[in-house]
Structure formats: structure tokens, C-alpha cells
């Protein structure tokens, strides 16, 4: 059941995000800390507006925190709003994203959508295509490799999006409600896919979800409420407290 990581993939240390100032000040998250090991998969639960997406985008180096630190692979990459690395390059090389909508690029077919992530990272075209096909095979959509997104079902699109997120062998995958647009069967499939990726590829996976039916695939669950993170206890699927 448990899959303790040998090394840390990501650490969030006392992350706080404040939007606006003065009378319009809103606290998006407050003193949130979380450590995640390689190959670990966790769920982030909570009502709308609780700060889940704020936390996820902060970890994804998209939305810098007001204070606190983010460490990836032991390296401090954000100190408050200050970027200590080239965050765009860091996202390219170390992070993978999956969203509620697949957000595939409409003018690229399935394998091109996966390969483009690698080519942006400097991987030669032929190698990128080869790995893209491998990933699509791994995720069970290789038969739709030449199809454009509008020719794929929602589940197939989401699988291609997962393949894209895996393309550069990221150390951290961030998924924001990846099954919200899918039926329960396909939603379950995607969640199991994340679990498989975490186990087999050794990536840390953080999934924001409202889908309580698939929580058994996670090593841990966390709940956010009013910008604060706490370890959730749902069924038998909980593990250690936040590090």
C-alpha cells in the first residue's frame, strides 16, 4: 500500500499566497507545507475556493507564492515570489501538467502533441516521435496517434495529455481535476494511470480531485480548506502526516 520515497521530489515550505492588498486582500493559501517523495501519488481535496488550484499552480511555478519556499529535487527554486531558476526551463524539464480539459493543441495530432513537449526541450524530432509513440502505446492510445484532438474521445484526449505530461520524464506531475469531464469508468482509468505512472516512472504525482470514488489509488490524501492544508482521512487510504 505504502510507497515511501527514497528521496524527496518536491517540498513546499510555509507557502502563503495573498491576492490584492488592503481592503481587497484575500488569502489564497496560508502557511502550507508539503513534502512528496519520488513515486508518491497524493490527492488534494477540498471545496471550491479552498486554495487547491492556488497551491497546485504555485508548485507548478506558474503562480508564485507571496512567501515560503519551493524546493524541487532538493534545489530551492522559489523563495517567496523570487524565482531562483529559469522557471520556464524548469517547467519544461522537470514538471508535467494535466488539467480538467486535456488542453491539447488542436492543430497537432496525438503523437505530435506529445512530441512537441520534447522538441521544446531540445529533443531531436526523430527521438521525440519515437518516445511519443512509446508513451501512447504505454497509455493505450497508440491506435489514435495520427488523429487530431477533435477526432478523439474525452478519455483518449486525457490519455494523450497524460502522455504529454510524461514526455520529458518529469520528477513532478501536477493534475488539476483531470477526471472532472469524464464518466466514472474513464475517470477511474485515468486515476489508475497516474498511479501506474508514479509506480513505474518514479514521478511524484499531485492530483486535485473531487472524485471520492477513486481515492484508493492514492498513497495519501490531503484536504484544503480556507487556504490551509491538512491530511485527510478518507476510508483506509491515508498515510503519514504532512512532512
Amino acid at each position: 500500500m505504502k510507497n515511501p520515497a527514497d528521496t524527496l521530489a518536491v517540498e513546499a515550505l510555509s507557502l502563503t499566497k495573498i491576492y490584492g492588498s488592503g481592503n481587497t486582500e484575500v488569502v489564497g493559501m496560508k502557511e502550507v507545507s508539503l513534502s512528496l517523495g519520488k513515486g508518491e501519488i497524493v490527492a488534494l481535496l477540498g471545496p471550491s475556493g479552498s486554495g487547491k488550484s492556488t497551491f497546485l499552480t504555485a508548485l507548478g511555478l506558474i503562480n508564485p507564492p507571496t512567501s515560503g519556499q519551493i524546493r524541487l529535487g532538493g534545489q530551492t527554486v522559489m523563495d517567496g515570489p523570487k524565482e531562483l531558476v529559469d522557471v520556464r526551463a524548469y517547467r519544461r524539464q522537470h514538471l508535467g501538467f494535466v488539467f480538467q480539459k486535456a488542453n491539447l493543441i488542436p492543430f497537432l495530432n496525438a503523437w505530435e502533441n506529445v512530441a512537441v513537449a520534447m522538441e521544446l526541450n531540445g529533443v531531436p524530432s526523430s527521438l521525440a516521435k519515437e518516445r511519443a509513440m512509446e508513451l501512447l502505446e504505454y497509455l493505450g492510445v497508440s491506435d489514435r496517434a495520427a488523429n487530431h484532438p477533435n477526432e478523439l474521445s474525452g478519455g483518449q484526449q486525457q490519455r494523450v495529455a497524460v502522455a504529454r505530461a510524461l514526455a520529458n520524464r518529469p520528477s513532478l506531475i501536477l493534475a488539476d481535476e483531470p477526471t472532472a469531464a469524464l464518466d466514472s469508468y474513464r475517470g477511474r482509468q485515468v486515476m489508475e494511470l497516474f498511479q501506474k505512472v508514479a509506480r513505474e516512472q518514479g514521478a511524484a504525482v499531485v492530483v486535485v480531485t473531487h472524485d471520492h470514488r477513486s481515492l484508493d489509488v492514492f498513497d495519501k490524501t490531503y484536504e484544503m480548506e480556507d487556504g490551509k492544508l491538512s491530511e485527510g482521512i478518507i476510508g483506509s487510504h491515508h498515510t503519514s502526516s504532512p512532512r
Binding site: G60, I62, R88, A89, Y90, R91, R92, Q93, F97, N103, I105, P106, F107, V116, A117, L120, N121, R164
Partner: peptide, 16 residues
């Protein structure tokens, strides 16, 4: 614009 945002999210350089 949405695709461009996605490309940026994936770390695409401005040049691309």
C-alpha cells in the same frame, strides 16, 4: 491564445 498559453506552460521559449 489558449494554445500559446499551453506552450508557455510546457516551457516553450519566447523564440518558439
Amino acid at each position: 491564445i489558449h494554445d500559446i498559453a499551453m506552450l508557455k506552460l510546457m516551457g516553450a521559449k519566447n523564440g518558439a
